[in-house]
Design a protein around this nucleic acid. Structure first.
Lengths: 211, 211
DNA sequence: ACGAAACATGAATCACCTTTCATGTTGGCC
DNA sequence: GGCCAACATGAAAGGTGATTCATGTTTCGT
């Protein structure tokens, strides 16, 4: 249960330092994703990165610090991919569509995302929570705006964001990660969209359900 | 990446053996849930269980075997809780309601479920997948039946089951596990139900959407 | 081109963990 | 009450891996 704040190493001051650090990060991502945190050793990471064992400690204070860094990096990348994809959409439904497509595509290309985030539960609950919070707040903001425009029904954007995020997560796990195809089957995608449409549709389906 | 099939130890033949084994399982659940798989050592488990180190190997072949057993046990219990709660419901919506309520209640009482299942990703992908598959198949069957009765709209029960399962999972994580209250706030629960209702409602909200 | 700071190295240290095993102890059947 | 299999024990063997450090090498501002 190490809750100690490891004071992070200062950023590299030379080009060489930056290069080595980047190599270590990339190697760490690969190792964490393939063998998992428990079996990921510093030796393995440094070997894959092609640097000496001691070099690791020049750049990181320990295994947890580099793990955190890897998570933050992946998180940033997936959010960027999703928002880039959905920002051009004309309406909310279209934005959902593009956002989810981007998410599944990212998952297909970087299975490390799932595999690593799920381990963060113990390794580093703070960064894990941060990851979900970050995705969620962008998502909730989008829903909120759409609600203002009357494109979707009135609901708590935060709850909706978490629920939809969860739906996407498990669908991605089941059909992108676990299926050999490596990309989501179109019918599954359409089904998911139909569910989302139903959930967000402006007209409440049961009559007279007002707050 | 140990993929070896560890031949499991035979079941205990005396009452004492069974008792010890149970103590070890309970201790393992606690340890895995509090410190996580990487930091969970056999010593820790046996100490908590109050038995000698060597005794562990009388009952289990190693760390992975007891982990698998713990996961299977938790999985069985949560499924049992959910199906017991939802089986008496008069219709599908009510069944959803009771099922989710039971799930959140179980989560509140056994945070170990989440914490442990999420680690299974690497420790033991098979049991993890089994857990989700098991929940899902029951869920999908329920949806299928409801669809036959016309209570919910026509959709792929499997996709719907995974999507809803995911929604529940993240909502539970966010509001049961992460919030100090320890139980889901009623408004959040109602919001989730509203989303589910919308997603499953028999009348497609966008007109003329027929297959 | 020089020198100080930054960086890289890998052998050595240290802490801890898994697993075995020879030896006792207990449970329950006759 | 006696006996055998089942069970429990904990010391010890054998590993593994994280982290340190004294020592070289490179970078870069001047």
């Amino acid at each position: 249960m190490s809750l100690e704040e490891t004071t992070p190493r200062p950023a590299p001051r030379t080009a060489r330092g930056a290069r080595t650090r980047a190599r270590l990060l990339q190697a760490a991502e690969d190792v964490f994703a393939t063998v998992g945190y428990p079996d990921a050793s510093i030796v393995r990471i440094t070997e894959l990165a092609g640097v000496a064992l001691g070099t690791f400690y020049v750049h990181f204070t320990g295994k947890k610090e580099i793990f955190d860094e890897v998570v933050r990096d992946l998180s940033r990348r997936v959010r960027q991919a999703m928002s880039a994809a959905s920002s051009a959409a004309p309406d909310r439904l279209q934005a959902e569509r593009e956002g989810f497509r981007a998410f599944f595509a990212f998952t297909a290309e970087h299975p490390a995302l799932y595999r690593i985030i799920r381990q963060a539960e113990f390794v580093s609950p703070e960064v894990m929570r941060r990851h979900y919070d970050d995705i969620c707040s962008g998502y909730a903001a989008g829903l909120d705006a759409a609600m203002g425009r009357g494109e979707i029904r009135g609901l708590d954007p935060e709850v909706a964001a978490w629920a939809l995020m969860g739906a996407g997560e498990l669908i991605g796990m089941r059909w992108v990660l676990w299926e050999r195809e490596g990309r989501i089957p179109e019918p599954v995608f359409e089904q998911l969209m139909a569910l989302i449409e139903g959930a967000l549709a402006p007209t409440p389906t049961t009559d007279g359900e007002r707050t």
